[in-house]
Structures are given as structure tokens and as C-alpha cells.
Amino acid sequence: MNTEILTIPQAAKFCSVTRMTMWRWVKAGKIKSFVTPGGHHRIAKSDLEDALRGHGIKYISRQLDASPRILIVDDEPLIVQGLQKLFTRKKCEVETALNGFEAGVKSKEFNPDLIILDLVMPKMDGFEVCRFLKSNESTSHIKILILTGYSTKENRSEIMEAGADAFIEKPADNKEIIQITKDLLKDMNWVRLNL
């Protein structure tokens, strides 16, 4: 992969923003791009870095072929340990949090691609965490997978309205968790997505 010339999705991943945000920056002229004969926008990596610095836009650079980053948030240590083991074996970078407040802090520091989130936790529940992350431009791109033992119709509806991307009921099968993770992260196009 030529990482000196980026597609819109690659540029968005490099900056850890959504594709739509990157597209808006290109359309607004904040980032210089060129159009291929096939009509696709491309961005020189050096132009992207210059534009971001010039406009004072904060970004977190990631290698385009980096392993997925997953933040596991649950107040049950055994579930956290099991999921951590599962995703570490799959060559993912994994961080954990035991409550919603810690999840908010770690989502900014760790910049995960996916958060596996419990609904019922101390300090800040999964509903609040999901709404907070999806309403914040710097974290709205993060995929959120809800994993909960409280799978009522009302909870499922409320969490999807809060912005969650998928929902699994506990106890969940590892194969099901991996398949949903693959589906949520399919647009990332990682070279080493070893799921």
C-alpha cells in the first residue's frame, strides 16, 4: 500500500476522525486534495499533515496498517479478563476500564477503534457513556458494541438510540463476539486484521 497518497477513509483513519469529517474538511478546502481520472479524491500525506498543523487541528496519527484498538468496559473482572485474552490472542491492542467514567477518560487517551461496553456499571452507566462518546466529535467515530446481561426490549431500543453500533446478550459466544467485531471494523481495511 502506498501510504504517501491516501484515500478519504485512509486519511480519516490516520487522523482518527470519521470519513464524513474528513470529507467536510476536503470540501471546505481545509485539506488539499486531487481527483483521479476515475473521479476519486486523493490526499498527499504531507499535504494532510501540513494542513492539520496549519489549521491547528489536533489529531492522533496512526499507522494505516495498525492493529485494531479495543477498549473493554465492564465492572465484572472475569468478563474483562476473558475478553482481554480473546482479543490479545487476535493481535489487537487492548485496554480495559471498570466503570463508565474511566471509559470516558480512556477513550480519549487510548483512541480505540471499538469499545465493548457493559450497560450496568457504577459511576456512569453504558447509556450515558454511549451518548457522551457519540455526541463528541473527537470520539463519535468509535464503534460501540454493547455486551450486557440486561437485554430487555427497552434497553436494546434505548442503547441503539444512544448511538451504539451493535448489541449482544450475555453470556455471549466468543465466535459471535469476533464475528460482530469483524463486521463493525470491516471498513478499517487493516492489513493485519487477524480476527
Rank of each mutant, 00 (worst) to 15 (best):
Q179L: 12
E169I: 08
A166R: 02
A166W: 00
S140W: 00
D183M: 05
M188S: 14
M160E: 02
G163T: 04
G163V: 03
T181K: 02
R192H: 11
A164F: 02
S140H: 07
D187F: 07
S140R: 13
D173T: 11
N174E: 15
S151N: 14
D183K: 13
K186Q: 10
L195R: 06
L145Y: 03
A162L: 04
P171K: 11
S157H: 13
T139Q: 09
E169H: 08
K182P: 00
S157V: 09
L184K: 09
N189P: 03
N194W: 06
M160R: 03
H141E: 08
P171T: 07
R156P: 00
K186Y: 04
P171D: 09
E176D: 13
E154G: 05
H141N: 12
A166S: 10
L145E: 03
K153N: 10
H141C: 11
K186F: 03
I142C: 05
E176Q: 14
I142N: 07
D183C: 00
S138M: 07
S157Y: 10
S151I: 04
S151V: 03
P171E: 12
R156G: 06
S140Y: 01
E176H: 11
A162P: 01
I142R: 04
D173R: 15
L185N: 07
T181Y: 02
D165S: 08
G163P: 05
T181R: 04
I142L: 10
E169G: 12
W190D: 00
P171F: 11
A166Q: 00
S151Q: 10
I177G: 09
K143C: 04
M188P: 04
I159E: 01
T139F: 07
R192E: 06
T152A: 05
S157G: 09
D183I: 04
Y150M: 14
K175H: 14
K153F: 08
A172I: 08
T148C: 02
L145H: 03
L193V: 08
M160Q: 04
N174T: 09
A166Y: 02
L185W: 10
E154I: 13
E169S: 15
V191D: 12
N174H: 15
I168H: 07
I142V: 15
N174G: 05
D183W: 00
K186A: 11
K182Q: 12
E161N: 14
L147F: 14
K153R: 13
E161G: 09
S138L: 07
D187H: 12
I146K: 02
K153E: 12
K170G: 09
L195Y: 14
V191A: 15
K153M: 10
L193G: 10
T148A: 02
I144K: 01
M160K: 05
